[in-house]
Design a protein around this nucleic acid. Structure first.
Lengths: 356, 356
DNA sequence: AGCCATTCCTATAACGTTATAGATTTGTGG
DNA sequence: CCACAAATCTATAACGTTATAGGAATGGCT
């Protein structure tokens, strides 16, 4: 308005070579750098016409704010850190989780740094590092323990975070979890429907909270239905395959062998089946296996496996959204989420009278 | 976005509350900020005693350089971007690759951002983004194509990168690859040793260069040993499990069925075995399967599978080292690497005379 | 004593951004 | 026609770092 509209539309020969900054836009529009900044943030004290002009040239020049500049000035990193446990990683769903979080972050300003920590490391180490050096605006972590010092640490410091898996600490924070109790109950009812009489649970390691959920759901539902059951607690679904294989074979060789096996992971399912088959038992007729699976792998190998699906992608998406809301102090659509499995994938009909 | 220090649980002297900067050290030592900076960089024009003092107080205060400051001033991001294809991702080794790269980066100043790109995306998109916005000092990408525009793009712009997998473009750049030709030859010789007479290769999709290597090694070595062979090129090891399953079953039902199957992936191995078993064939006696595997999974299920191991962790470590050397313009220990498989894991002895 | 090289340190500016306070113009009411 | 508010813009400083040019001592040499 008050600026004489001295026909700028400057021809920028070299300026196309360098990455445009606010300065570039300021020069091109004849405005001050601060004005350009405020215009792009849609500040109320900038004229509509000016905003339009600024946005236009910004788009035209392909302007993208310099992350280092923003970060230095504001302290906002626009980074989300994904802190992953590598402890249990034979074909787990880690890449799925990574992908879905990255996908949910598409189109936002957030980059995702991934920080696995290894068995020789204190799990607190990456967390402390991130919080102390302010390397990220928020953290997503997996493999929570019932009492998880990482959760306490971040909660105490008001550092935004979200967890894949719950804790037992009575702390309110964003999380997403698979309802393993519901899963186990559903599995037990499935066994009952198929007329199975002796159930066996190969549970995950007791240190994990979800192992307790699963064990409780399994035990309680089996008791409810008057089904004899055993919880294998010296082997776990995280044991090496051979161990599970052996444990299952031993039980099948004993009197009163199980005819329904519930397992918490794909690998444990495979090992269990292999263990039973070593003794000539036929999956689907002599015994059933119900497994929780995130990837469609068991079906390829033993079409008789009964599968209850876990959607890890949903978890990732949820966690990303919830964490971003937490960081930006917006109310999230949902702060805590639980995947409640209801669908049982029966696989092929039981092979009755098939050749051994 | 400084967090207001609301309700500090820990009472610390103010100096401890804020993260120490060069300024803090300067104040503590009575030196100028520039001096502190130079001392920490071990510049030649700073006295030894001063350096010692500076290093000491820096350590004592727990000083860590502010990444945004460094990045803004120098343009160095200290970030390595991992650009991952999600195309082929049923239990692939992605998480392994991520972990090993992260592990190799431990103790360095580099953070790792992970950017998967999805089927609906142009593979160039993340690459262009990173190069244009200078979001990273270098890129590691996987799933290279024989003629890969991403490689050309980065090479043209002298942007540091390293690839998991080779290309066919005659461009010199850091890479690591598994020698699939050697793998296939070794597999063929293994079949020969076991007296197999008709070989079948379930090859990876032809668009991948490594599929060509594998196919060539397979065909040439089989011809050399006068073994009849077939390369299945309508199904690939990336096809859905059922497809491979079906293809294998069809071939076993036909006259002159194969008795040695070479597959490029764990999933394809499982499907192949399942397909043959559907017709009552027994793995290890009626036919053999040789598979390349990064994770120890097949052994759990079918102990008769013959496995040649691929060490993805080695790839990740190599790529990280090579890329960092490239970024820092140091001569790397090795710029290109090829994993040459020599060890065959035979599994259990063939089950002769075992029950069907 | 004067000069110069050497050694060690410091002041300054700049990277790109945004928060703050203030400047300028225009409109409004008295 | 003047004070005063509203609308719109700008100047400045600061975030933490490092590159550059320069300054202050010290010692050696003529």
């Amino acid at each position: 308005m008050r600026q004489p509209p001295e026909a700028p539309l400057v021809v920028l020969p070299d300026s196309e070579l360098e990455r445009p900054t606010l300065k570039t836009i300021a020069a091109a529009t004849g405005l001050a750098i601060a004005t350009v900044s405020r215009a792009l943030k849609d500040a109320p004290d900038i004229g509509e016409e000016t905003k339009r002009r600024v946005r236009e040239t910004a788009a035209q020049l392909g302007y993208r704010p310099n992350r280092a500049g923003v970060r230095l000035r504001t302290g906002k990193t626009n980074v989300i850190a994904l802190v992953l446990s590598t402890e249990t990683d034979v074909m787990n769903h880690t890449s799925r989780l990574i992908y879905s979080i990255a996908n949910a972050l598409r189109g936002t300003a957030y980059h995702m740094i991934v920080m696995p920590f290894f068995p020789d490391q204190d799990p607190m180490e990456p967390i402390r590092y991130i919080v102390e050096t302010e390397s990220a605006d928020g953290v997503i972590l997996n493999q929570t323990k019932p009492d998880d010092p990482r959760v306490r640490y971040m909660k105490d410091r008001h550092f935004p975070f979200a967890t894949h898996g719950r804790t037992d600490m009575g702390i309110d924070h964003p999380y997403f979890d698979f309802d393993n109790e519901a899963f186990a109950r559903l599995a037990v009812r499935t066994f009952a429907e198929r007329g199975r009489k002796r159930l066996l649970l190969i549970a995950p390691p007791r240190s994990h909270l979800y192992a307790r959920h699963m064990t409780w759901g399994f035990s309680d539902e089996a008791a409810l239905l008057n089904l004899p059951f055993e919880v294998a607690d010296n082997v776990t679904s995280d044991s090496g395959g051979e161990v599970v294989d052996e444990a299952v074979a031993t039980r099948f060789a004993a009197p009163n062998p199980p005819d329904g096996i519930l397992v918490g992971s794909t690998t444990a399912a495979m090992s269990s089946i292999a263990g039973a088959e070593r003794l000539g038992r036929v999956l689907g007729s002599d015994f059933d296996v119900v497994a929780k699976e995130a990837i469609a792998l068991l079906r390829r190998f033993r079409r008789q496996t009964i599968i209850i699906k876990e959607d890890v992608g949903r978890a990732g998406e949820f966690l990303a959204r919830a964490l971003v809301a937490e960081i930006e102090k917006r109310p999230p659509e949902a702060r805590q989420g639980l995947e409640n499995p209801t669908k049982v994938d029966w696989g092929d009909p039981p092979r009755t009278g098939e050749k051994t």
